Amino acid sequence: MTWGWTGGGRGTWTGADAEASLDAMVDRLGVTWVTLAFSALQDTAQSTTIAWRDAPTPTDDEIRTAIRAAHARGLQVCLKPVVNVRNGTWRAHIAFFDEDVPCEPTWAQWFAAYTEFQVHYARIAAEEGVAMVCVGCEMVQSDKREDEWRALVAAVREVYPGLVTYNCDKYQEGNVRWWDAVDVVSSSGYYPVDDWEAQLDRIEAVVRRVGKPFLFLEAGCPSREGSPALPNDWALPGAPSGEAQADWYRAAFAACARRDWVGGFMLWDWPTRLYAEAEAAANDDYCPYGKPAEGVIRDAYAEGVARRAHG
């Protein structure tokens, strides 16, 4: 599961609620890995400074405490620092001119700030024994900047000895030309309930060509009528429906179980403070806590663990 994003931010990653959330995630789902995901803000899609030292980004102490709490529960950890845009623009639209223009912000300026941001947390990951770091998430407009991304990964590797991945956006798996620079190929698996086979066929060609392990570093569906057809739309209108969410998970897991190259999921997502279980039926967000999808996930994960144990 992904933990720490929803309801997260500075002041929420530690304490009784956070501990109870982690316990419930492990006990009720049987997860073996957790992605600890958090954001830092830049003002606009063309800003070249990232305020990772400021709220809402969790403090270094909070991040270290959460890593240790996950480790204490037997989990492997992926640390995922993500840049977001303060004005609400989706980070996929962060972009600059292909050729530098005087007095205009540049890719070089942005990547310098972004590299400092990523390297800072890579050092923490190294010191805390984190198994994997994710150096970017759904940065569609920047994916084409191959040289800059290769240099960023190299800078991370100077301070961090573990696995490195990049989380490309849905449908973008074939557009990243620098997969050889990372250890694990990963993407956001928000695919329509009836389209999994076609999308997996497409992704498989990329994975076979690259020759790297693959997992979905994000995947999930809101518990809402209509969401299985468009699971990436967190604001899609519709009545709460736990069964709709469960149906999407059944389809996703069934399709992926037939593909031996799908190495796993970091599902989206599990909040730092859980809603009351009695309120689950009225909750239409991604978290499966107390919903029918919880059992679907638990059973699929148990089968996956057993399958790996036997070969």
Rank of each mutant, 00 (worst) to 15 (best):
M1W: 00
T2Y: 01
G4M: 06
T6A: 05
T12Y: 07
A16Q: 10
D17N: 13
A20I: 01
S21D: 04
S21P: 07
M25W: 02
V31E: 06
T32N: 15
T32H: 13
D43P: 01
T44D: 09
A45M: 07
Q46S: 12
T48Q: 00
I50F: 03
P58K: 04
D60Q: 08
D61Q: 09
E62H: 12
A69L: 11
G74A: 13
G74L: 13
L75F: 08
C78Y: 00
K80H: 13
V85F: 15
G88N: 10
F96T: 14
D98E: 14
V101K: 11
T106S: 15
A113T: 03
Y114A: 14
E116F: 07
H120L: 04
Y121E: 02
I124M: 13
A126S: 13
E127Q: 15
G129D: 02
G129A: 06
V130N: 07
C137I: 03
L152N: 05
V159C: 09
Y166Q: 01
C168E: 06
K170M: 11
K170D: 09
Y171G: 00
G174C: 08
W179Y: 10
A181G: 06
V185F: 02
G189N: 10
E197A: 15
D201N: 14
R202D: 09
A205N: 01
A205L: 13
V207A: 01
G211I: 10
L217T: 10
P222Y: 05
G226F: 05
A235C: 02
L236P: 06
P240I: 13
S241K: 05
A244N: 05
A254V: 01
A254E: 12
W261R: 09
W261P: 09
G264S: 10
W268C: 08
W268Q: 07
L274A: 10
L274E: 00
Y275W: 12
Y275E: 05
E277Y: 00
A278Y: 00
D284W: 04
D285F: 09
P288Q: 10
P288D: 12
G295N: 14
Y301G: 05
A309M: 11
